[in-house]
Design a protein around this nucleic acid. Sequence first.
DNA 1: CGGAAGGTTTGATGAGCATCGAACATGAGG
DNA 2: CCTCATGTTCGATGCTCATCAAACCTTCCG
Lengths: 105, 105
Amino acid sequence: MPETETPHDPDGYPVASIQSVLAALSDPVRLEMVRRLDAAGAAQPCSLLYDEVSKSTASHHFKILREAGVLERSKIGGQVHQRLRRAEVDALYPGLLDSVTAALG
Amino acid sequence: MPETETPHDPDGYPVASIQSVLAALSDPVRLEMVRRLDAAGAAQPCSLLYDEVSKSTASHHFKILREAGVLERSKIGGQVHQRLRRAEVDALYPGLLDSVTAALG
DNA sequence: CGGAAGGTTTGATGAGCATCGAACATGAGG
DNA sequence: CCTCATGTTCGATGCTCATCAAACCTTCCG
């Protein structure tokens, strides 16, 4: 029987420097992605995480967030999902995501 | 008799959006400025807050931090000083500066 | 008054980045 | 197998921004 999902596909990125994480978070499109992921509390398919930009632009932003160690790509039932790596970021920069997501309402 | 200092010269900037504050903090030169101001715990003359860039570049970075509402310019005994607006930023984005300065060691 | 020191402003330059369309990849379903 | 849906990659473009030198402003001091 096939597993319903493969929980491990960490994309191998460590959480980056505070400077890189702040840079990753300092864009309105990416901030909205993080906001929606945080609100959802679970991994989401890419298309639910933006509206105002093209697919290729969104993919570019996902990559930046992933390389900063803020997001992780996984496949759930063949669908690409993005997950907010809250625990990992919290471990390195406690309170950072809390303050940011609080500010995002 | 002239006052030894004029404590009020707030430059009139409110603390900006979380996106703008994150953008202001996402540069290595500016992060170092904030780190030194936080470590000092008091307003400092400009020249103590950077080494690696020219005066004009530093002045550019001060302006960005001021416009984001993170710094404030004041004159102490005729000397220009920069002050970290910790209380003001904390009020709007609690925990943000704490997590950032903690990450800066 | 006349320097000198400390900051700011201006103008120019080069690098980085956000953006898009088009082509490609992958997987699900008929 | 073919097609559609969903993401990613590639190449090009335009804008923003970090950087500097030079000129300017202010304040202090001789």
